[in-house]
Structure formats: structure tokens, C-alpha cells
Deep mutational scan, measured.
Amino acid sequence: NITNLCPFDEVFNATRFASVYAWNRKRISNCVADYSVLYNLAPFFTFKCYGVSPTKLNDLCFTNVYADSFVIRGDEVRQIAPGQTGNIADYNYKLPDDFTGCVIAWNSNKLDSKVSGNYNYLYRLFRKSNLKPFERDISTEIYQAGNKPCNGVAGFNCYFPLRSYSFRPTYGVGHQPYRVVVLSFELLHAPATVCGPKKST
């Protein structure tokens, strides 16, 4: 009989979030998941669920729940959905087409922007091929755009693959930082360890 609440607040209220290319994953298990708490945590810009209804979450049980978190800019949030393409979905964080879970995003301009520009958040701009779903690539190998090998040196047709967002508070919403948490629900042929409040007794 599990009584402890799932530590969603640790994920959502973390002081620092990860850069999207090096997104963070927390496995959540053996706890009571009260998803209604999430609705009250922040004024969400996005709370979209796929393959599951957000209002039914509190009635369900899962084997595992994974919470992935990272920062992107406002106009990239739409890429965090099944079947999307674009720089983020292709080279940084890719959801599977049959994704079961929820994408939660909110504006973090007050936390993640600086007047002089916050350069701490990076994204991958160049990659030889698209990522597979939930693949994480943290390599910093020089990207070869031409025929000549780069031998690890940046220059003509040889690019450092990561680029930094420079978040400034005066930017338009599309270029402001957004914190994203992706909850993916895993149903294996194994005992369910993460249940809503109704199912945990």
C-alpha cells in the first residue's frame, strides 16, 4: 500500500533546468501520483496529453512515469509533440509517434532571462542524422558540413554543433524561455507502482 506522493514538485520547481540537447530525465515510481497538483503548480502555457485524457490521469496506474525536463524558446514548444519536425524535434528531443503522456510548458522569462542575455541554455544546431525517439546526444564533436574532414577544428564548413540561446527579458514571447516537462507513461507487463490517489488504497 503506497502512500508517499510522487515528487513532481522537485521536477517542476527545480531551480535550474537542463539545456534541451542534454535534457534531464527523472524516473518516478512507487508513489501516489496526484496530477491535479500539477494544474495548480504554475499558470501553464501548455498542458497537452496524448493517448490519455488529462482529467482521467488520477484514475490510472502505470509501471513507471518518466519526467523529462529542459528549456526551449516559446515558438519551439509546438515541436514537443508526436510527429513534429524542426531543429528541436530533429536534433535535441524527439517524441515517438505513439507517445503516451503529457507535455507541460510554461513561460520562464522571469527566471531564465537576463538583461545582458542568459547564454547558459544550449541547443544542438547541427547533426548528421535525426534523433530516434527519446535519444539523447550530448556530443560536442565538430560538425563537418563540407567534404573536407574537420579534424576537430572549427572553421570553414566545420561547425561547433551547439548554439546558445541568449534569453533577454525584452524579447518577444516566441523568443522567451519556456520550461518544459514531458511526462511519459510506461505500461509494462509488470506491477503498477505509480497510481492516482483513488487507485492507491
Score class of each variant (00 low, 15 high):
Ser116Arg: 15
Ser116Trp: 15
Lys114Leu: 15
Thr46Asn: 09
Pro7Met: 12
Ala42Lys: 04
Thr201Ile: 05
Ser200Tyr: 07
Lys148Asn: 06
Asn147Ala: 08
Leu41Thr: 12
Ala190Cys: 06
Asn147Ile: 07
Thr55Trp: 03
Lys48Thr: 07
Thr63Asp: 02
Ala154Arg: 10
Asn40Thr: 01
Thr85His: 00
Ser129Phe: 07
Ile2Gly: 11
Pro43Glu: 03
Tyr66Val: 01
Ser36Gln: 10
Ser29Val: 09
Asn58Arg: 06
Phe160Asn: 02
Leu187Gln: 03
Ser116Asn: 00
Lys114Trp: 15
Ala192His: 02
Lys198Ile: 05
Pro191His: 01
Ser129Met: 11
Ile142Ala: 14
Ile142Cys: 15
Ile138Leu: 00
Phe45Tyr: 02
Val32Phe: 10
Val153Tyr: 03
Asp34Leu: 15
Glu141Asn: 05
Asn120Ser: 14
Arg27Ala: 06
Asn4His: 11
Leu5Phe: 04
Leu111Met: 01
Thr100Phe: 04
Leu5Lys: 06
Val194Cys: 01
Asp9Gln: 10
Glu10Leu: 13
Lys114Asn: 15
Ala192Cys: 04
Asn130Phe: 11
Phe44Met: 03
Val32Trp: 06
Lys198Asp: 02
Ser116Leu: 15
Lys198Trp: 05
Asp9Leu: 10
Val173Phe: 02
Leu5Trp: 05
Leu57Ile: 05
Ser29Lys: 04
Glu10Ala: 07
Ser19His: 15
Tyr178Trp: 04
Ile104Phe: 07
Asn58Asp: 02
Val153Ala: 06
Thr85Met: 13
Asn24Arg: 02
Tyr21His: 14
Asn120Tyr: 07
His189Tyr: 08
Asp98Glu: 05
Phe160Glu: 06
His189Glu: 07
Asn118Thr: 15
Gln84Val: 05
Lys48Asp: 13
Lys148Leu: 02
Arg163Glu: 12
Asn120His: 01
Pro43Asn: 13
Ser139Asp: 12
Pro169Ala: 15
Phe47Tyr: 04
Ser116Glu: 15
Leu122Phe: 01
Asn130Val: 12
Asn109Tyr: 15
Phe126Asn: 07
Lys198Gly: 06
Gly174Ser: 07
Leu188Glu: 02
Lys132Val: 11
Asp9His: 06
Asp9Val: 09
Lys128Val: 13
Ile2Glu: 08
Tyr123Phe: 04
Ala192Tyr: 06
Ile2Cys: 04
Pro169Asn: 15
Leu125His: 07
Leu111Lys: 11
Asp59Met: 10
Leu187Met: 03
Val65Ile: 13
Lys128Phe: 14
Val11Ile: 10
Arg163Cys: 13
Asn58Lys: 05
Phe45Asp: 01
Gly152Glu: 11
Phe134Trp: 13
Ala22Gln: 07
Thr193Cys: 07
Asn24Lys: 00
Leu60Cys: 08
Thr140Cys: 10
Ala22Glu: 02
Ala192Asn: 01
Thr63Asn: 07
Ala190Ile: 10
Asn58His: 09
Ile142Leu: 01
Ser29Glu: 11
Ser19Pro: 14
Ile104Tyr: 00
Val52Met: 10
Gln144Thr: 13
Asn40Pro: 10
Ser184Tyr: 10
Phe134Ser: 15
Thr15Asn: 12
Asn1Val: 12
Phe45Thr: 02
Arg78Glu: 10
Asn130Lys: 07
Asp98Gly: 13
Phe134His: 11
Asn120Gln: 10
Asp9Tyr: 02
Gly155Gln: 12
Lys56Arg: 06
Gly155Thr: 03
Thr55Arg: 00
Arg163Ala: 07
Thr46Val: 00
Asn120Arg: 02
Leu5Gly: 13
Lys148Ser: 04
Tyr91Met: 13
Arg78Gln: 07
Leu122Tyr: 02
Ser184His: 12
Tyr178Ile: 14
Ser116Gln: 04
Val37Thr: 00
Tyr178Cys: 13
Val52Phe: 01
Leu188Met: 07
Lys26Met: 10
Asp97Pro: 06
Arg27Thr: 00
Ala154His: 07
Ile2His: 06
Pro197Phe: 00
Asp97His: 08
Asn4Phe: 14
Thr140Lys: 08
Ser53Gln: 07
Leu187Ser: 08
Val32Arg: 05
Arg16Leu: 10
Tyr119Pro: 04
Arg163Gln: 00
Val115Ala: 15
Ala192Glu: 02
Lys132Glu: 00
Gly196Phe: 11
Val115Leu: 08
Pro191Arg: 07
Asp9Ile: 08
Asn120Phe: 07
Pro149Ile: 10
Phe47Ala: 06
Ser166Cys: 07
Thr193Phe: 08
Thr46Met: 00
Ala192Ser: 08
Leu125Met: 08
Asp97Gly: 08
Val153Asp: 11
Phe156Met: 04
Ala33Pro: 02
Leu111Ser: 15
Tyr143Trp: 08
Phe160Thr: 09
Asn13Gly: 11
Ser200Asp: 04
Tyr178Met: 13
Thr15Ala: 09
Val115Tyr: 15
Lys132Tyr: 12
Thr170Ser: 14
Leu5Ser: 04
Val37Asp: 07
Lys199Pro: 09
Ser164Thr: 05
Gly174Asn: 10
Ile28Phe: 11
Glu186Arg: 11
Lys198Arg: 05
Ile142Tyr: 01
Leu188Ile: 05
Leu60His: 11
Lys198Leu: 12
Tyr66Ser: 14
Val194Met: 11
Glu141Ala: 13
Lys198Pro: 04
Pro7Asp: 07
Ser184Val: 12
Thr201Trp: 10
Val194Ile: 04
Leu41Trp: 05
Thr55Ala: 00
Asp90Lys: 08
Phe47Thr: 06
Gly152Arg: 13
Lys56Ile: 12
Ser164Tyr: 06
Asn4Asp: 09
Pro197Tyr: 00
Leu57Met: 08
Asp59His: 00
Leu188Arg: 01
Leu122Thr: 02
Asn87Lys: 10
Phe47Cys: 05
Pro149Thr: 00
His189Asn: 05
Asn1Ser: 13
Asn130Met: 05
Tyr119Cys: 05
Glu10Met: 14
Thr170His: 15
Val37Leu: 08
Asn118Asp: 15
Asn30His: 07
Ser36Ala: 09
Thr15Ser: 10
Thr193Pro: 02
Val115Gln: 15
Leu60Thr: 01
Ser36Thr: 03
Lys132Ala: 03
Leu188Ala: 10
Leu60Ile: 06
Thr55Glu: 10
Asn64Thr: 00
Ala154Gln: 00
Gly83Leu: 14
Gly117Asn: 15
Arg16Phe: 13
Ser53His: 14
Ile2Ala: 04
Val65Cys: 09
Ala18Gly: 13
Lys198Asn: 04
Glu186Trp: 10
Thr3Arg: 08
Pro54Thr: 13
Pro7Asn: 06
Tyr121Phe: 13
Asn109Ser: 15
Pro54Met: 07
Ser139Gly: 11
Lys128Asn: 04
Val115Pro: 15
Lys198Tyr: 03
His189Phe: 13
Pro169Thr: 15
Phe156Tyr: 01
Phe45Gln: 02
Phe156Gln: 03
Arg16Glu: 07
Asn147Trp: 05
Leu125Arg: 13
Leu41Ala: 05
Phe134Cys: 15
Phe44Glu: 01
Val37Gln: 01
Ser129Gln: 01
Gly155Asp: 05
Ser116Met: 15
Phe134Met: 14
Ser116Val: 15
Lys114Phe: 15
Asp9Phe: 13
Asn151Arg: 08
Phe44Leu: 09
Leu111Gln: 11
Ala22Asp: 00
Lys56Gln: 09
Ile2Asp: 05
Gln84Glu: 04
Ser113Gly: 15
Leu187Ala: 12
Asn87Tyr: 09
Ser129Glu: 06
Phe156Leu: 06
Ala145Val: 02
Lys26Val: 10
Tyr123Ala: 15
Arg27Gln: 04
Glu186Asp: 10
Leu188Asn: 08
Asn87Ile: 09
Pro54His: 04
Arg163Asn: 12
Pro54Trp: 04
Gly152Asn: 04
Ala33Cys: 11
Ile104Trp: 12
Pro191Val: 12
Ser200His: 08
Lys199Met: 11
Asn58Ala: 05
Phe160Tyr: 02
Glu186Gln: 05
Asp90Gln: 01
Ile142Val: 13
Arg163Leu: 14
Asn151Ser: 08
Gly83Asn: 10
Ile104Leu: 07
Phe62Val: 13
Tyr178Val: 14
Ala145Lys: 06
Ile80Val: 12
Ala154Asn: 03
Tyr119Lys: 00
Arg168Thr: 09
Asn109Ala: 03
Gly83Lys: 07
Ala154Asp: 07
Pro54Asp: 10
Phe44Arg: 01
Val194Trp: 06
Lys128Cys: 14
Leu5Arg: 06
Phe160Val: 05
Asn151Gly: 04
Gly146Asp: 12
Leu125Cys: 02
Phe44Ala: 04
Ile2Leu: 05
Lys48Val: 13
Leu111His: 09
Asn4Gly: 10
Ser53Lys: 10
Arg78Lys: 03
Tyr123Lys: 14
Gly174Ala: 00
Gly196Met: 11
